[in-house]
């Protein structure tokens, strides 16, 4: 659906994006992950035709954005980092303007009403945009992208600056939209992509770092998984049993948190899920497991690991060349 081929973009001497290639297949929700300044927005601006790439091509549904920009743009709904809203207009006027701008052929009233229902802005439909809260503005921004029912939706950090409840609502909305559209979602929040995306593309300093299925990527970077388990039972025996469970590399007591249970930190071997065997061993001994949490890796950890991994591989390749 979306093909990015060897795209580079220079701003003067600075390389914002260099030689980036990836594809998004139809119906997929792609997470576009990277630290601030990695080139996420630049790439999205290139896909949507707001910027032109210094070299390389971007195709939407087989149409090159440079060869036939009008047709390509018709297939895209774009929510930029800052929602492009006119504060002096009402929501109704604004959406009606976008409807005209995109030259839609659907029945106007019905189409706008459907979109308002989807993004839940019906109750502010007649209010001025400058009087809306940030959450509502973001929704109007999403509504704007949905007008014309484009095949591809591109959201640039749609949950930034929202409160936790709004973040969850917007995520669910995007998940729902992903059933009928191909979506690219950029973010620098890891749980967001885990919750929403089928596949993740990670870039750093304008370069592709990873392009993998969400589960694979999480597993690959986590390597050994760290768990915190709350178990009721005799401290020493439980610890001994934990260490003896297959796949566990390391275990330690974190301390008493609740009145009767004790928290343990468990580190598993690479790419092994110990949760099931853990459950059965505890059940056999009659020690109730009252809590089990994965220690979440944050984005910084992932980057450090991914980038280290890449460096190591490069190093290996170089050494390999020398030997060859």
């Amino acid at each position: 659906m979306i093909e990015i081929l060897n795209v580079s973009k220079n701003f003067g001497d600075k390389k914002a994006v260099s030689d980036l290639s990836f594809n998004v297949v139809e119906g997929e929700i792609l997470g576009f992950l990277g630290p601030n300044g990695a080139g996420k927005s630049t790439t999205m601006n290139i896909i949507t035709g707001y910027l032109s790439a210094s070299s390389g091509t971007a195709k939407i549904d087989g149409i090159d954005i440079l060869d036939n920009p009008t047709e390509a743009k018709r297939k895209i709904g774009f929510l930029p980092e800052i929602p492009p809203l006119y504060p002096e207009m009402t929501v109704k006027e604004y959406l009606s303007f976008i409807y005209d701008l995109k030259d839609c052929r659907f029945p106007r009233e019905q189409h706008l009403k459907e979109i308002c229902d989807v993004v839940k802005i019906g109750d502010v439909y007649k209010r001025m945009i400058k009087n809306l809260s940030k959450g509502y503005r973001q929704r109007v921004g999403i509504a704007q992208a949905l007008i014309g029912n484009p095949k591809v939706l591109i959201f640039d950090e749609p949950t930034i600056g929202l409160d936790p409840k709004q973040i969850i609502e917007i995520r669910n909305l995007i998940k729902m939209l992903g059933r009928e559209h191909t979506v690219i979602l950029s973010t620098h929040i890891l749980p967001e992509v885990q919750a929403v995306c089928d596949r993740i593309v990670v870039i750093n300093k304008g370069k592709l770092v990873a392009n993998e299925k969400t589960e694979d990527l999480i597993l690959a970077v986590e390597g050994s998984r760290k768990l915190v388990a709350k178990i009721v039972g005799p401290e020493a025996d439980v610890l001994k049993m934990l260490k003896a469970t297959g796949g566990v590399r390391y275990a330690e007591i974190l301390g008493k948190r609740d009145t009767d249970s004790i928290s343990y930190l468990i580190e598993s071997e690479d790419k092994v899920d110990v949760r099931k065997s853990l459950f059965y061993s505890l059940a056999k001994n009659g020690w109730p497991l009252v809590g089990l949490e994965g220690m979440e890796l944050n984005l910084e950890d992932i980057f450090i690991r991914l980038i280290d991994k890449e460096k190591n591989e490069q190093g290996k390749r170089k050494r390999g060349l020398k030997q060859g």
Binding site: G49, P69, T70, K73, R74, I82, P84, L85, Y86, I98
Partner: peptide
Amino acid sequence: KSRTEQVLLTAPVS
């Protein structure tokens, strides 16, 4: 300034 040009320049308009 208000970045609304992004919606104009990414719309199917020359």
